[in-house]
Nucleic acid binder design. Sequence first.
DNA 1: AAGCTTGTTCATTTTTTTCTAAACAAGCTA
DNA 2: TAGCTTGTTTAGAAAAAAATGAACAAGCTT
Lengths: 179, 179
Amino acid sequence: MAKSYPMRSTESPQVTNEPSESQRAIQAQCIEIFVSAAAVLGVPRSIGEIYGVIFAAPRPLTFQEIVERLNLSKGSVSQGLRALRSLGAVRTAYVPGDRRDYFEPETELRNLVAGLLRDRINPHLEQAKDRLTRVQQQVTDGGGLNADEAVVLRARLAKLESWRKKSALFLPLITKVLG
Amino acid sequence: MAKSYPMRSTESPQVTNEPSESQRAIQAQCIEIFVSAAAVLGVPRSIGEIYGVIFAAPRPLTFQEIVERLNLSKGSVSQGLRALRSLGAVRTAYVPGDRRDYFEPETELRNLVAGLLRDRINPHLEQAKDRLTRVQQQVTDGGGLNADEAVVLRARLAKLESWRKKSALFLPLITKVLG
DNA sequence: AAGCTTGTTCATTTTTTTCTAAACAAGCTA
DNA sequence: TAGCTTGTTTAGAAAAAAATGAACAAGCTT
């Protein structure tokens, strides 16, 4: 299955050796863990696999190696890596004299969490803030709202506002604590 | 669109009045917010809609009302309500002399978060713990592992272990703080 | 028991998401 | 410039998730 692949030049010999059997086994287990984490986070399975294989590799991997070890298409890997880079979960490592990209994992939890907050949570909180303001307007104007009902609705929206505030306050704090 | 629906008896008159126009508008906005939250949390859209319509209603709603206001099938509503009850996000309210279930929202953030932790996060953390232990074994046994590589791998697994510990420590703490 | 109402289950359909593969771009090297 | 290698883009296929609707259960009421 694993295709042998050609060297590009004699002065930059290909150190891309195959992983040992036990390394492969360890890799597989790590991948399982991250695939399951991906499910919890609601991201595609392939993204978990890609992060997993990079995390479990003792040296940075090339694009091609990721494709081969995971049996994924180039397309999936390209997209997955883009997402992971945008989250700050993988970085490219420079290797002198090699045109290819090498990928290594971000291993600081706080940075990973910060990326998730930035890319997934905060945009939602922003949007929710706007929407909430607009609904609160409507309830205050309250044409045709029964008085009792208006009281309950106002209370509900106050709750929602308090959720939003607490989230905006505590979420960024988490990344601090994880230092 | 809204079907009129029959009373069941004269002694338990149907107070199930239609929501006013402004109430309907407010409801729609709330639903939008929760649908978007559902997307962030990676749960089905319909679950966001169902929680939204219950949250935005000034009184507990019946199963039938939820079906009608959202134009969802009974099947979807049944499944969605089951999930929401399991999370502790909606409760049934008892109404004397009425056989139907009435649903009202849990509005305490800490309880909602606690439900998510219990149902979604903790099971993953448990599983990860077992898996991690097993991989650590493998690396320690380390047949056929290059020494340099073994060092890096051990460090990686140590990181993973530290993530797990931090998560297990801080996540439950969050629900405390949200009091 | 027959006939309601209320809600659940589950096989099927629909919709959405994810993956693939082929075409393409960009940058080397010869 | 022709011919590599490396990686991206995207239309369409494949797979997975979600919604539907019809059959079913359970419990009233008469």
